[in-house]
C-alpha cells in the first residue's frame, strides 16, 4: 500500500500578482509582483505621485486594481474597507464628536451582534463594562489614560495619532495600514511615536504597511522597505508609464551608498515631475 502525502502549499498571507492601476489614460502603478508574510512591517517610500498611497488604497479597499490580483490568505482582497484592515491617516482619523474613550470603544460597539447593537451601535450592561475595560487598557498602553474624557480637538497632533492607532488596534486587524501617520508631527514627538508603533507591532504581531516621505524613517521602522519609482519615463507622455516597486530591501541593509542611490533616484523622479508640471 502506498501512502501518498498530499502536501498543499499554504497560500501566502498577502500576494500581489501583476497588479496595476490606471485612471483613464494615466498609469499610476504597473506590474507589482510580490508576497508578504504575516507579521512583516513594510515601509513604503517614493516621490509624490508614484503610487504609494494608491497602493495603500488598494490594500484598504478604497481603490481596486485595474490589472492583476491582490490576494489575502488566498482570497481576493475585499472591495470595500472592512475590519481585517485597520487604518490610520495623517489626519481626520478620529471622530470629532466622540471623546477619547468613545472613539476607542466605537469599534467594539459596532461589531456587537445584538439588535440594539446593530441598530444604534451601542453596548449595554456587562458587555459595555468589558468593552470599557479593554479600551482603558489599550489607552493606557498608548499613553492616553489621563485624557480619556477629552474630545479630539483638545488633544495635540501626537495625541490624536496615538488615539487613532488605539482606535484601529482594538479591532485586532490582520493588517494595519499607516498613511504618513507621523508626517504632521514635530520631530521629538515623531521619535516617541516610532517607539510606540514598534512596541505595539511586537506585541500584537500584526502586519503593518506604512507610507512615509522620510527614507530614514522608512529604514528605521519595519523589516522591509519598498521604493516606488518609475522605471521608464516618456517626457512627452508623462503618464504613459506607471511606477512599480524598484527596491525591495530587507531592513538591516545599511550601506550608505545604497541609501544615497535611492535618494538620488527618488529625487530625480520628483524633479522630473516638477519640470513636467511647469512645462
Amino acid at each position: 500500500m502506498t501512502v501518498r502525502l498530499v502536501t498543499e502549499k499554504p497560500p501566502h498571507f498577502l500576494e500581489f500578482k501583476r497588479v496595476g492601476k490606471r485612471y483613464g489614460d494615466s498609469v499610476v502603478l504597473e506590474n507589482i509582483n510580490t508576497q508578504v508574510k504575516k507579521g512583516e512591517f513594510i515601509t513604503m517610500v517614493g516621490a509624490s505621485g508614484c503610487g504609494k498611497s494608491t497602493f495603500l488604497k488598494m490594500l484598504s479597499g478604497q481603490e481596486q486594481a485595474t490589472r492583476g490580483v491582490c490576494l489575502m490568505e488566498g482570497q481576493p482582497i475585499s472591495e470595500e474597507p472592512d475590519v481585517n484592515r485597520g487604518i490610520v491617516f495623517q489626519k481626520y482619523s478620529v471622530f470629532p464628536h466622540l471623546n477619547v474613550l468613545e472613539n476607542v470603544i466605537l469599534g467594539l460597539e459596532l461589531e456587537s451582534t445584538s439588535l440594539t447593537g446593530r441598530l444604534f451601535g451601542k453596548l449595554f450592561g456587562a458587555a459595555r463594562k468589558a468593552a470599557l475595560e479593554e479600551a482603558a487598557t489599550l489607552l493606557e498602553k498608548v499613553g492616553l489614560d489621563h485624557a480619556m474624557h477629552k474630545y479630539p480637538h483638545e488633544l495635540s497632533g501626537g495625541m490624536q495619532q496615538r488615539l487613532a492607532i488605539a482606535q484601529a488596534l482594538i479591532k485586532k486587524p490582520k493588517v494595519l495600514l499607516l498613511d504618513e501617520p507621523f508626517g504632521a508631527l514635530d520631530p521629538g514627538i515623531r521619535a516617541d511615536m516610532h517607539q510606540l508603533i514598534l512596541e505595539l507591532w511586537e506585541e500584537t504581531g500584526t502586519t503593518i504597511f506604512m507610507v512615509t516621505h522620510d527614507i530614514t524613517e522608512g529604514f528605521y521602522l519595519g523589516t522591509r522597505l519598498w521604493v516606488f519609482d518609475k522605471v521608464r519615463n516618456d517626457p512627452t507622455h508623462p503618464h504613459a508609464w506607471g511606477a512599480t516597486i524598484t527596491y525591495d530591501l530587507p531592513i538591516g541593509v545599511t550601506s550608505k551608498n545604497l541609501h544615497d542611490d535611492i535618494r538620488h533616484d527618488v529625487n530625480l523622479t520628483s524633479r522630473h515631475q516638477d519640470e513636467q508640471l511647469v512645462s
Partner: peptide, 18 residues
C-alpha cells in the same frame, strides 16, 4: 472618516447613526 468607520466594522446604517 468614512473609511475609518468601515474598518471599525460599521455598516451603512451604523455609519448614519453613529
Amino acid at each position: 472618516q468614512w473609511i475609518k468607520a468601515q474598518t471599525l466594522g460599521a455598516n451603512s446604517w451604523q455609519l448614519m447613526t453613529r
